[in-house]
């Protein structure tokens, strides 16, 4: 059931990619995403795919884990593909029969969209698989530090993200348990129209909220007990430090980006 979701889960390891500073990984991922949206030629996508493949190898992550993260989105991908084929009317017609009007351009566009999305998910999955959520939060906090000058609550935001990340698996387990318990009482989540299904969620949502508030209450006490008093005067055990591999990785990424922009 819900326990099968792997998106955003960390895959422990000690590869070069794992050892990169999380800030480097975050910046590289952002650059990678920008590049994905700049190109629109199939063979360049192929080039990026090769780059992704090499990065995955370097991270020592089995390719099937990356593919696994695509699975929950397969229907969205298919729908996007079909919609694009039918929506775009420009270009040379290939099929013109009954309501079907498909052009060469529409097929190409649809392929671009899919290639972009698949590579986007693969790239972000690679980042989350090789970076612990907490390291990622730290990276965001560190990169956003300049915003403190304009009184933006950077520490509070990072703490909220940390807690959210910590409790997502707990609450997913809880949802799973409540769902099973209501199923055992004959609840039916799978049949009926939209309204009936929405109503069927009430027996899950109410207990889930009750429990989440209780947890929040207890967590607040526990944090108080452990001397939490906001970000002021707080130190960190792990201090992020850029090392040589970060410089190499940065250089590789710059060369790759410039190369892609030049050839496309």
């Amino acid at each position: 059931m819900l326990k099968d979701i792997t998106l955003g889960r960390y895959f422990p390891g000690d590869s070069v990619v794992h050892r990169l500073d999380p800030r480097t990984k975050l910046l590289i991922t952002i650059a990678y995403m920008v590049i994905l949206f700049l190109v629109d030629e199939l063979w360049v996508f192929a080039l990026i795919a090769v780059f992704m493949y090499l990065a995955t190898l370097a991270a020592q992550i089995p390719i099937r884990y990356i593919l696994h993260s695509l699975r929950p989105l397969r229907w969205i991908l298919i729908i996007m593909f079909v919609l694009n084929i039918f929506m775009i009317k420009t270009g040379r017609p290939l099929v013109d029969w009954w309501i079907f009007y498909i052009t060469d351009e529409s097929i190409l566009r649809a392929l671009f969209i899919i290639a972009r999305l698949v590579l986007l998910i693969a790239g972000t999955s690679l980042m989350t698989l090789t970076t612990t959520p907490i390291a990622l939060t730290d990276a965001i906090e560190s990169l956003m530090k300049p915003l403190k000058l304009v009184k933006f609550p950077v520490h509070e935001l990072a703490m909220m993200m940390t807690i959210a990340l910590r409790f997502i698996p707990t609450l997913l387990d809880e949802t799973d348990r409540i769902m099973k318990a209501q199923l055992a009482r004959g609840a039916d989540f799978e049949t009926g129209g939209l309204i009936k299904r929405a109503k069927a969620m009430i027996p899950i949502l109410i207990p889930l909220f009750v429990s989440a508030f209780k947890r929040a209450d207890e967590l607040a006490y526990a944090m108080d007990s452990r001397c939490y008093h906001g970000g002021i005067g707080r130190t960190r055990m792990k201090i992020m430090k850029y090392s040589r591999i970060d410089i190499y990785a940065g250089l590789v990424m710059v060369v790759f980006c410039v190369g892609i922009i030049l050839i496309s």
């Binding site: 612990t132 907490i134 807690i163 910590r166 947890r215 207890e218 967590l219 526990a222 007990s225």
Partner: peptide, 14 residues
């Protein structure tokens, strides 16, 4: 102070 439910007093993911 250590509380009853271990789940609700652990703050981070590691």
């Amino acid at each position: 102070l250590c509380f009853q439910n271990p789940d609700n007093q652990i703050v981070t993911t590691i």
